[in-house]
Design a protein around this nucleic acid. Structure first.
Length: 501
RNA sequence: GGGAUGCUAGCUCAAUGGUAGAGCUGCGGACUUUUAAUCCGUAGGUUCGGGGUUCGAGCCCCCGGCGUCCCA
């Protein structure tokens, strides 16, 4: 039988010591986790109030502040500590024998570790080196940390940073900045859409039928309803129902779930913005998309000039280039590729560049793969709208108004990544039914990514959906574009496998 | 899915198949102006898990776990 005491003995030495200090705090009448502290100011407020003090100044102003101890420099009769608040602002605490007395100073030295949250009450001064400081009259533990922090001057390894993001946030300003950048960008997206008369709505994450994209879903079930449920792969079909209902400008920013692998650009759960506007077409939606992304960049950087942490810059200002999918591919291949190009020729072209064509690939899928192989690298990172996709890969998109075999769909590429997609939405319920029937046939042939026939969605369309444009923007991808970081950095807590299986 | 590569002290990393080490952190001591403080002393290990080869395995082999990079 293992007692609690034995378990403590098995802890690493440094944790045992911190547990002991936690116990000692209580013995000395110092609560290790007090419920409240007489805080009078934030660290940021103190810094703001005294921005430019000379060296060795006494302000006569007394404050009570709290923060996490990130440096300690204990000497015999005068101790220094740097306290940092969650926003990253720092201030020095000084504890002198003369001010706090021998007992409080000895307690400080014996019981305070790097990583503890402490409270310090005293006068705002500057030290003889000019550092803005609070010269303590008293101190209190705000929250004892039982685990040592990583060393501050060596980078943590990526795995630990992601698994223990709280440590990353404590240790690395860039991690805090990333989290704030995301808040700024997403906040601006909402603002941009609200300003254009859009309503933000919430549609189901648990769905009885998944649709709106081609992807494998996560499957779960309801005990109460004895029902198989799917985590949504897209909100599209519900947002369109809202448009049918008369909500003519709607958007949603929320998580989608796709039961697929992850890499530097894919996460099983990812944030998606979708927005729909009645009486707009895909060109109008492209313009709004560009404006939203530019406005997000301005919100983060103050201008459409995006600057990554490594110093590389991308100019997102102005109009963005448009290329035609078939046209740019034809140019790259050196022969005319159209929706009428025979499948056999497409397969030859694909095989010539080592694209393995699966038997169930439709012609449009081969064209898109050829496009990705030949053309995307020529964009040179520049924001580019790729216009007019094959009809057979876009079952929810309206036929092109003049080009046979194509639909009014664009993909937006920035930095070589697919960033957004926009449609003139298919609103003809008869054609939509035919398209979804064709998808169901693919599904019956074993394509487990094919769309299902959603009768209620079709019923909604049969009530009449106004001509509409729709867009999906990957929020995590947008953050990647703005920061130059991988998707697992733009997501605060990405999915990681358990450490022990 | 294929290939390469990594996992060692709290953190970052060393270690021809032959006594597992360093820096920082920690602990003890000195220091009333420090900024990754300095100086003296000292502790800290199930080398990811399991099996195998060997007189002997952190290292070699096999199986598994978790990462990273490249390719598809």
């Amino acid at each position: 039988m293992t007692t609690e005491h034995d378990e403590e003995l098995e802890l690493p030495e440094q944790m045992r010591i911190r547990h002991d200090k936690r116990d000692k705090l209580a013995e000395q009448g110092r609560e290790p986790y007090p419920v409240a502290l007489p805080i009078t100011a934030t660290i940021a407020a103190v810094r703001a109030q005294f921005p430019d003090l000379e060296i060795d100044v006494q302000t006569g102003v007394s404050v009570g502040i709290a923060g996490r101890v990130i440096f300690v420099r204990n000497t015999g009769k005068l101790c220094f500590a740097t306290l940092r608040s969650g926003d990253g602002t720092e201030i020095q605490a000084m504890l002198s024998l003369a001010k706090v007395g021998e007992e409080a100073l000895e307690d400080w030295k014996a019981l305070v570790d790097l990583g503890d949250h402490v409270f310090v009450s005293g006068e705002v001064i500057t030290s003889k080196r000019g550092e803005l400081s609070v010269l303590a009259d008293s101190w209190a533990m705000a929250a004892k940390s039982l685990r040592p922090l990583p060393v501050s001057h060596k980078p943590m390894n990526d795995d630990s940073r992601i698994r223990q993001r709280y440590l990353d946030l404590i240790m690395r300003p860039e991690a805090r900045q990333m989290a704030q950048t995301r808040v700024k960008a997403v906040g601006q997206i909402r603002q941009s859409l609200n300003d254009r008369g859009y309503l933000e709505i919430e549609t189901p994450m648990l769905q009885t039928m998944h649709g709106g994209a081609t992807a494998r879903p996560f499957i779960t079930s309801s005990n109460a309803f004895d029902l198989e449920l799917y985590l949504r792969i897209a909100p599209e079909l519900f947002l369109k129902r809202a448009v049918v209902g008369g909500m003519e400008r709607v958007y949603e920013i929320n998580r989608n779930f796709r039961n697929e692998g992850s890499d530097s650009t894919h996460s099983p759960e990812f944030a998606m913005l979708e927005f729909y506007q009645a009486y707009a077409d895909y060109r109008e939606m492209a313009k709004i998309t560009r404006e939203i992304i530019q406005e997000a960049a301005v919100a983060v950087f103050g201008s459409p000039l995006v600057t990554h942490m490594d110093g590389t810059q991308h100019d997102l200002s102005g109009e963005w280039r448009e290329v035609s999918l078939y046209g740019s591919l034809s140019e790259a291949v050196g022969e005319d590729i159209t929706p009428q190009t025979p499948r056999a020729r497409l397969v030859e072209l694909a095989n010539a560049v080592d694209i393995a064509v699966a038997p169930n690939w439709v012609e449009g899928k081969i064209v898109e793969e050829l496009f990705e192989h030949y053309v995307i690298s020529t964009f040179d990172g520049q924001p580019t709208f790729v216009m007019d996709f094959p009809v057979d890969t876009s079952p929810l998109t309206r036929d092109h108004r003049t080009e046979a075999g194509k639909v009014e769909k664009w993909d937006l590429y920035i930095n070589g990544y697919e960033q957004a997609t926009g449609y003139s939405e298919l609103v003809d319920p008869v054609i939509q039914r035919e398209r979804l029937m064709a998808q169901a046939a693919l599904g019956a042939r074993g394509d487990d990514e094919a769309m299902k026939l959603d009768e209620d969605f079709l019923r909604a369309l049969e009530h009449g959906m106004p001509p509409s444009g729709g867009v999906g923007i990957g929020v995590d991808r947008l953050l990647m574009t703005l920061t130059g970081l991988g998707i697992r950095e733009t997501i605060l807590f990405p999915l990681v496998k358990p450490e022990r299986a």
